[in-house]
């Protein structure tokens, strides 16, 4: 049981059983939200370092709470305040953090594969909190958890992922997780933001939102990075919003019990209207809560068994 690797670098590297173990473990973790005393002794004496090369409030806070509620000592390093600005290499930074006694390094980096480099360098468990456009495994885990919680299953569901697929690590992690658990995935966005050969990852591809929404049980709306427009990837926010923004009218074309997800923070009025994001169909806030539970589960499962740096049994 537990996980086969010392790190969580992506859902790409997990098998179905491992993903389900994490989701199952997150169920009792979520119980802590109902308590007055949000504290478990599980990771007492362990140190967790959040190494963030990209600004992030949500993910960092979520990891921080997950660690703290399990009694780990948590430190945050953001690029602006660290020696990274002085040109220290990632490898060097990783070694320094390990020398400070870190058991977990949670890393967010703007480049794909950066967590892999850290994982190869240190014996601590490395958790990928988003690497470039590659993966954001804990986001996908919380999405899977939310889907399971709301709809009772994942196998056989139709899930549409809408938006900037090309640059989205959330999309890639979701594709891995959903397909491994037996969902049918359709990705949808403007042609300029669909990566080449993405269908080989086991998904349907469409540029038509109507087509993507039809019959979908879940719609996962991605955040649109507004600066992409300047790179000539789409002509204007207005046209993007017109073609791919999720409005009440478009939701009406979905199944009545459709579940709408958004990784946040949303550009309200661009990829999703506030009305839809706050509607009962959407689970935006539930996702945030579930994020902490899923991250607690990941930390627990990476912490156990054997010596650090070895594959957990």
């Amino acid at each position: 049981m537990a996980l086969k690797h010392k790190d969580l670098l992506g859902l790409e590297y997990l098998d179905r059983d491992e993903i389900e173990t994490i989701l199952d473990t997150a169920v009792p973790m979520k119980e802590i939200f109902t308590r007055d005393i949000k504290k478990l002794p599980t990771l007492r004496g362990k140190t967790m370092v959040n190494l963030f090369y990209e600004p992030s409030t949500r993910t960092r806070t979520s990891f921080e709470l997950a660690g703290k509620w399990m009694s780990a000592d948590v430190t945050n390093i953001a690029t602006s305040t660290s020696s990274v600005a002085k040109g220290e290499s990632l490898k060097d930074t990783a070694r320094t953090i390990e020398a400070l006694g870190a058991n977990f390094i949670v890393i967010r980096h703007q480049m794909a594969g950066a967590p892999h480099l850290v994982a190869r360098t240190v014996r601590a468990s490395v958790v990928n909190a988003g690497d470039g456009r590659h993966e954001h495994p804990t986001q996908a885990l919380l999405d899977l958890f939310t889907i399971r919680e709301r709809l009772g299953r994942i196998e056989g569901l139709k899930v549409a992922i809408v938006g900037d697929i090309l640059h989205s690590r959330v999309a890639r992690s979701n594709i891995w997780g959903l397909t491994k658990l037996g969902a049918h995935v359709t990705v949808c966005g403007p042609r300029t933001l669909i990566p080449p050969d993405v269908s080989r990852m086991g998904v349907e591809v469409t540029t038509s939102l109507d087509e993507a929404l039809a019959g979908s049980d879940v719609v996962n709306v991605l955040r649109m990075q507004l600066e992409r427009q300047k790179k000539g990837l789409f002509p204007s926010i207005r046209e993007y919003s017109d073609l791919y923004g999720l409005t009440r009218e478009k939701v009406k074309k979905c199944k009545p019990d459709v579940l709408i997800l958004h990784p946040g923070p949303a550009n309200l009025g661009v990829e999703i209207t506030e009305e839809v994001a706050e509607s009962p169909s959407a689970a935006v806030h539930q996702q945030v809560t579930n994020g902490v539970a899923c991250r607690m589960a990941v930390l627990y499962l990476l912490s156990g068994g054997g010596k650090p740096g070895e594959v957990a049994a």
């Binding site: 594969g113 690497d131 456009r133 590659h134 993966e135 890639r172 990566p195 080449p196 050969d197 993405v198």
Partner: peptide, 13 residues
């Protein structure tokens, strides 16, 4: 190279 593997690995192609 731009293709399936760049898509999968999230590297610019």
């Amino acid at each position: 190279n731009e293709g399936y593997w760049s898509t999968r690995l999230g590297l610019p192609g």
